[in-house]
Amino acid sequence: MQIWTDLDQVADGPRAVVTIGNFDGMHMGHKRVVGACVERASRQGLRSVACTFDPHPRKVHDPDSGMELINPLRDRLDAMAATGLDATLVIHYDQSVYTLSAEEFVRRYLVQALHAAEVVVGEDFRFGRDSSGDVNTLRELGRQLDFDVVMVTDIEAPEGRRWSSSWVRDLLADGDVTGAARVLGHLHRIRGTVEHGHKRGRTLGFPTANLATGIEGVIPADGVYAGWLVRRVPGTEANEFLPAAISVGTNPQFGGTVRTVEAHVLGRSDLDLYGEQVAVTFVARIRGMEKFDSVDALLARMDDDLRKTAAVLGVGVSSRVDPDSVTAGTGGASARC
Rank of each mutant, 00 (worst) to 15 (best):
Arg232Pro: 00
Gly214Ile: 07
Leu229Glu: 01
Arg259Val: 08
Asn239Thr: 14
Asn251Tyr: 04
Val265Asn: 01
Phe254Ile: 13
Val224Asp: 01
Val218Ser: 00
Gly223Leu: 10
Val233Pro: 12
Phe254Gln: 12
Leu266Val: 12
Pro207Phe: 02
Val261Glu: 08
Pro252His: 08
Glu216Tyr: 13
Ala263Arg: 01
Ala226Cys: 03
Glu216Val: 14
Arg232Tyr: 07
Thr257Phe: 08
Phe254Ala: 09
Val218Trp: 03
Ile219Thr: 11
Val265Glu: 00
Asn251Lys: 06
Gly227Lys: 00
Asp222Ser: 10
Ile215Asn: 02
Glu240Gln: 01
Val230Arg: 07
Ile219Leu: 11
Thr260Leu: 13
Val261Lys: 03
Thr236Lys: 06
Val218His: 00
Val258Trp: 07
Val224Ala: 06
Val248Asn: 09
Pro252Asp: 04
Gly235Gln: 11
Ala221Val: 11
Gly255Trp: 06
Val248Glu: 03
Ala221Gln: 14
Tyr225Ala: 04
Pro220Gly: 10
Leu229Ala: 06
Ala226Asp: 04
Thr213Cys: 06
Val233Thr: 14
Ala209Thr: 05
Thr250Glu: 12
Gly255Cys: 06
Gly205Gln: 09
Asn251Ala: 15
Arg232Gln: 09
Thr257Cys: 08
Val230Tyr: 01
Val224Ile: 10
Val224Arg: 01
Ala212Gly: 14
Arg259Phe: 05
Thr236Ile: 08
Thr257Lys: 14
Phe206Lys: 10
Arg231Ser: 10
Val224Trp: 01
Gly267Pro: 15
Val261Ile: 15
Thr203Ser: 15
Ala226Pro: 04
Val265His: 01
Val265Ala: 01
Val230Leu: 13
Gly256Met: 02
Leu211Ser: 10
Asn210Arg: 02
Ala209Met: 02
Gly267Asn: 14
